[in-house]
């Protein structure tokens, strides 16, 4: 098992390095001269040349890449072309916001999917189970931002129970923080919850068919108790895998949700940086997002190895 994990770690590191080259390469061809953007509409050619030099974008691409990636290792993502401030601290700050959002979204998804999925599985031959399945199909078909727009309209604009947007850090005011987080987390979590429900349902159905569960039920345990005692670990293997994939989806789904709710996370930072052609910032954000996905995949792989009894025995 250790060998397995080490192998995974190696793959993670190599992938991360290759990804960084890909991100750099992709954005090196972005049209729009950062110096021009920074200087505005009437920049003189001399000033442009000087600014290009200041940004270091007049040097060979390879030099630029190594300098950039070298800096990234020490947490230095360079200075923004537009604000001329260090990107690193901004990234950490925004990533923090997005992680709250993604975490809360995931929590909502789990709170929906676990009970709904297990219920639908246990009753999968009955009408009530089919209703849950049908609802989850419908939930998957609704785009997250549509859910967001509807939630804002109902709970913020009409009922005025919750803020329509904005962000309060938890330390400043925990109550404001929570009330501001609720609608975005629901928007993110409802759709993901619907997706997850289907996976929970099918893996629980699989487990319910296993012999040891049939035995347990024959002994008089209700299906829920039998599952709780014997089946959850086995049912959790595929669910954890999907959960990992969904984390990546949530991270990107947050881009749209942050726009709707005006939340200063990584997503709004990305969209701003793109429309300002703040190349270095875009580069940093994309790298962080891709690394986050790779890291999640790595962790899922490791968990999979640890959780899966068959793989454990094999090693």
């Amino acid at each position: 098992m250790t060998v397995q994990i080490l192998r995974r770690a190696l793959i993670f590191v190599v992938s991360a390095l290759v990804a960084s080259v890909a991100v750099f390469g992709l954005l090196a061809v972005l049209p729009g001269d950062p110096a021009q953007v920074a200087l505005g509409v009437s920049a003189t050619p001399e000033l442009l040349a000087k600014t290009r030099q200041e940004f270091g974008i007049d040097r060979p691409l390879a030099t630029q890449y190594f300098e950039w990636i070298g800096g990234v290792f020490s947490g230095d993502f360079g200075n923004s072309y537009v604000t001329r401030e260090p990107i690193g601290p901004q990234l950490v700050d925004r990533l923090g916001v997005t992680m709250w959002l993604v975490g809360a979204g995931m929590l909502v998804a789990l709170l929906i999917a676990l009970p709904a999925g297990v219920f639908a599985a246990v009753r999968h031959r009955r009408a009530s189970g089919s209703v849950i399945s049908g609802l989850s199909q419908l939930g998957v078909a609704v785009p997250g931002f549509v859910a967001a727009i509807i939630l804002v309209q109902v709970f913020a604009v009409q009922l005025r129970w919750l803020p329509a947007g904005g962000w309060t850090p938890p330390i400043v005011d925990p109550l404001d923080f929570l009330s501001g987080l609720l609608l975005p987390a629901l928007s993110l979590g409802l759709v993901q919850g619907a997706v997850l429900t289907r996976y929970v349902r099918s893996s629980v159905i699989d487990v319910l068919r296993e012999d040891y569960l049939r035995t347990a039920r024959a002994k008089g345990l209700t299906p829920y108790r039998a599952l709780l005692r014997h089946g959850l670990r086995n049912a959790s293997v595929p669910v954890v895998t999907v959960l990992g994939l969904q984390l990546a989806t949530l991270l990107i789904g947050a881009v749209v949700i942050e726009r709707v709710f005006v939340i200063p996370g990584l997503g709004s930072m990305l969209l701003d940086a793109v429309s300002n052609r703040d190349l270095l910032t875009v580069q940093g954000i994309v790298l962080v997002l891709v690394l986050a996905v790779l890291l999640v995949n790595f962790v899922v792989d490791v968990l999979y190895t640890v959780l899966n009894p068959r793989l454990r025995q094999a090693s």
Binding site: I11, S15, V18, A19, A22, L26, L27, V29, L30, P31, A248, T249, L251, I252, G253, V255, V256, L270, L271, V274, R277, V282, V286, L289, V290, V293, L294, N297
Partner: peptide
């Protein structure tokens, strides 16, 4: 398949936003 996994790390929406910019 490793290269394939790497592409998987670029979520669709992110790729589309960057492509749109490029």
């Amino acid at each position: 398949m490793r290269v394939n996994d790497l592409v998987l790390a670029f979520p669709a929406l992110l790729l589309a936003i960057v492509f749109g910019a490029v």
